[in-house]
């Protein structure tokens, strides 16, 4: 399994994602946003952070980076899976690779906390750290088959408690919580491993 981790100016979860992927024995490489080579990769991560300083709106300016066109080609070729975490989710919505949009939390605060989620009919706990995580669903679109991760106590006011979406057909997975921060026992939670195992399983399908 080979993973590529895209780095935009302002990305700050690239190293965490690298270490988490390595824990599963995945071979990783960083990809600067100006590059256009996604050859020989099975999984592409758009990690968390503040790409382009979240200027104008989170994820808005990152959608113009050259690598995004290559991400679209990667999806078209059905080469593998795309995973957007936090800012990565915002970027995927801004590029319209996923429906809807993420905006300011309903309490107007940056929320940094552990949160309980529903994942495959079980409860898992993952950390969240965002100010713009309130998911707004597009009108008239049925998202039932895309909802793969939901908040139990909806901390940010997201529509339908959505914490993550998965477009199974195009293999585009995205979530606001940080599974890469919940892999190593030393940092507390380990439920993030379940998300990485899920990614591996989906890729093998």
């Amino acid at each position: 399994m080979k993973a590529g981790i895209i780095v935009f100016p302002g990305t700050n979860c690239d190293r965490d994602t690298f270490e988490a992927c390595s824990f599963f024995g995945w071979e990783c490489r960083y990809i600067w946003h100006n590059e256009t080579d996604l050859n020989n990769l099975d999984a592409i991560f758009l990690p968390g952070g503040f790409s382009y300083g979240d200027y104008i709106c989170s994820g808005r300016l990152a959608k113009f980076s050259p690598i995004i066109q290559e991400v679209k080609n990667f999806i078209k070729r059905k080469q593998g899976i795309i995973i957007g975490i936090c800012n990565g989710f915002q970027i995927l919505c801004e590029t319209k690779l996923l429906p809807g949009v993420l905006t300011t939390n309903i309490n107007n605060k940056f929320i940094c906390d552990d949160t309980v989620l529903t994942f495959q009919n079980t409860e898992i706990t993952l950390p969240i750290a965002h100010k713009e995580g309130r998911y707004i669903a597009p009108k008239g679109k049925n998202l039932c088959n895309m909802m793969f991760l939901q908040y139990k106590n909806n901390p940010n006011g997201s529509d339908y408690d959505i914490a993550g979406l998965y477009d199974r057909e195009n293999k585009i997975l995205a979530m606001m919580p940080h599974p890469e921060r919940a892999v190593f026992k030393e940092t507390g939670l380990t439920d993030g491993r379940k998300i990485f195992e899920f990614i591996q399983k989906e890729l093998n399908k």
Binding site: C57, L61, E94, V101, I136, P138
Partner: peptide
């Protein structure tokens, strides 16, 4: 393209 997102 840059200043607004029609979804929001």
């Amino acid at each position: 393209e840059v200043l607004s997102n029609p979804c929001l």
